[in-house]
Amino acid sequence: MKKNWKSRLAALGLAALSACSPQPKDNPIQGRVTIAADESLQPVIESIRRAYEGIYPDTKFDTLYRPEQQAVAAMLRDSARLVFATRELNASEVAVLAKEKIKVRTQVIATDAIALIVGKNNTDSLITMPELSGLFQGTITSWSQLKGSNQSGPVVLVFDNSNSSNLNFMLQKFGVQDVSKLRLYAVNSNRAVIDYVRTNPTALGFIGVNWISDGDEPLTRELSKDLRVMGVATKAVPSAISEYKQPFQANLAMQVYPLRRKVYVHSREVHSGLGGGLMTYIMRGEGSLLIEKSGLWPSVPYNRQVILNKN
């Protein structure tokens, strides 16, 4: 009899604790959460967000588009549930979450690229990785120093932000520690980079390729006007024009474009919530198709089935 009473009391205690515990306000098909993303990824993230909210009308994502460092910081301080970035979290960032007993969940969702752009009045549309290294090491400062160049004047390297993933990627790629002697110019966004390059013939712009790679989007067609996308060769002396690669989707899939990078989503979510629902959606067919449409290469390519009927 005593054992029976003890069992009942234990059950009542668990029920009371459950009633007092705060219940999640969201799940994969309803709720409202904030997510953050590097601004260079805005077009593809907007496409995914709109599609998910269209399928599940009881969901809402408040999206913060920031330079990558700020976007990651928003997730770390719990101002955002997820962050879309172009790098893994470093050890100190993982430690911040570990102190809160949160095990970060990370997925690689796509291959992205840095597109190099010049205005239509600049006829130089080919560059090599050694030449890019020279620009970032400060040994090349003028367009006339580039092989086959028809342009004169100083090369101005234009980025969206001093804390952006685009700039950080290029600095790390070429091992740059000191930027004080480089002719760098930071504007407010990838779109502002495009506008600046369009009107400044000595500018060389660096943007996330998804800003100009979705041909079905009116904004993409508008932004692509009066621009040239440079081809980049790995070798110092390419033997053929075909060795210069542009950041087209096929070149990302074949991993032959040298300025490619991975896209990650990092989650601090501790329950089966709306953030997890979005991550699952991205890795399935519909999400992969949206990534493909944006011009990036999805980690899980969309599986197209072709059925042939015999007559």
Rank of each mutant, 00 (worst) to 15 (best):
N200T: 13
N200M: 05
P201L: 09
P201M: 08
P201G: 04
T202D: 05
T202P: 02
T202Q: 04
A203Q: 07
L204R: 07
L204F: 00
G205P: 11
G205H: 04
F206D: 01
F206L: 00
F206S: 00
G208T: 05
G208P: 12
G208V: 06
G208H: 05
V209T: 14
N210K: 12
N210Y: 05
W211H: 15
I212W: 06
S213C: 10
D214R: 08
D214T: 03
G215I: 13
G215C: 06
D216S: 15
E217I: 06
T220E: 01
T220L: 04
T220V: 02
R221Q: 15
R221V: 05
E222K: 15
L223S: 10
S224T: 11
K225Q: 14
K225N: 10
D226E: 13
D226M: 04
L227I: 08
L227Y: 04
V229D: 03
M230W: 11
M230I: 10
G231T: 03
G231A: 08
G231M: 07
K235I: 01
K235G: 12
A236H: 10
V237M: 13
V237G: 01
V237A: 13
I241V: 10
I241S: 03
E243V: 06
E243N: 07
Y244D: 06
Y244I: 06
K245W: 01
K245A: 02
F248M: 09
Q249C: 03
Q249W: 02
Q249F: 01
Q249N: 08
Q249P: 07
A250F: 02
N251Y: 00
A253M: 14
M254F: 07
M254P: 00
Q255M: 10
Y257N: 08
Y257H: 04
Y257P: 04
Y257S: 03
P258D: 00
L259M: 03
R260T: 12
R261G: 05
K262H: 12
V263Q: 01
Y264C: 07
V265N: 06
V265P: 11
R268I: 10
R268Q: 05
V270K: 15
S272E: 14
S272V: 14
S272H: 15
S272M: 14
G273F: 02
G273H: 07
L274G: 12
L274F: 11
L274I: 09
L274D: 12
G275K: 13
G275P: 12
G276H: 08
G276V: 03
G277I: 03
G277Y: 02
L278F: 03
L278A: 09
T280H: 11
T280I: 10
T280F: 04
Y281N: 11
Y281R: 11
Y281D: 06
M283A: 09
M283Q: 14
